[in-house]
Design a protein around this nucleic acid. Structure first.
Length: 254
DNA sequence: GTTCTAGAAC
DNA sequence: GTTCTAGAAC
């Protein structure tokens, strides 16, 4: 029955040959507990986001362009497709079940920052219909479970939501702690994407799908990313990223 | 999404 | 002079 319900999983596996994934899912299915299945490798750099410059530039020999291999790599190896690769990598997977997988964000913008992704190849919220309602609810529930499973999470506040205009392909739910204590948080766009209306609450998205059958994103989203930096806890305006980051320390849990 | 860096801002 | 931001990346 799994094949009928999730034909895309089979397709994807055949394409990418991921034997690890197969055993992994079986294990989870047979276990069938509510607890989060942890299988995290603590090593760094998974190497999913290919820097367009790093590969050709490192080589002193001016490699020819337009080869079959490099052309194919362009489409699959493009940075915007990185999540599709990461989510298939067992070393990246924090949790998985029949419908979704959770990975750590490769460049976390807070102490805890996960992405919940469906196995179904849904490119973005634009492609979401009422048929995905239960899936979106499940993604939210799984996000909350990962939080509950995380040591020290009870001291932190979390938000779950989607970026109005995501850069990475494949729909992904951000689960992020509200400390925003991370060296990867570097610019205004990073801040505003999580701290303005650009961040669409998961619950609001679910409600929208429930009532309208689709997700509509208001106009003016790109402009939100350029708004002045404002503290999400006390609304104070800060003149620069370094000063914002210094200010945020005040609100860290004690 | 990130890196890199010119030149604006301080 | 140094810090910081913002736009290009073929």
């Amino acid at each position: 029955m799994v094949n009928e319900l999730y034909p895309y999983i089979v397709e994807f596996e055949e394409e990418t040959e991921s034997p690890g994934l197969e055993t992994h899912r079986k294990r989870k299915r047979s276990g069938d507990s509510d607890s989060i299945e942890r299988d995290v490798a603590q090593e760094g750099e998974p190497g999913t986001g290919l820097d367009p410059r790093s590969s050709p530039t490192q080589c002193s020999v001016p490699a020819k362009k337009g080869e079959d291999a490099s052309t194919k790599k362009e489409s699959l190896g493009h940075w915007s497709q990185g999540l599709k690769i990461s989510m298939q990598d067992p070393k990246m997977q924090v949790y998985k079940d029949e419908q979704v997988v959770v990975i750590k964000d490769k460049y976390p913008k807070a102490r805890h920052h996960w992405l919940v992704l469906p196995w179904a190849p849904i490119s973005s919220l634009k492609a979401v219909t009422w048929e995905h309602l239960e899936l979106l609810k499940h993604m939210h529930t799984v996000g909350e479970e990962v939080i509950a499973d995380c040591a020290g999470s009870s001291k932190l506040r979390f938000r779950l939501g989607y970026h109005a205009i995501p850069s990475m392909s494949h729909v992904h739910l951000h689960v992020i702690s509200q400390d925003f204590d991370s060296p990867c948080l570097k610019n205004k766009k990073h801040w505003n994407s999580f701290n303005t209306e650009y961040f669409l609450e998961s619950q609001a998205v679910i409600q929208m799908v429930q009532e309208a059958g689709r997700v509509t994103v208001p106009d003016g989203m790109p402009e939100l990313l350029k708004l002045p930096l404002r503290c999400h806890e006390c609304q104070q305006l800060l003149p620069s990223i370094p000063q914002l980051k210094e200010h945020l320390r005040k609100h860290w849990p004690k």
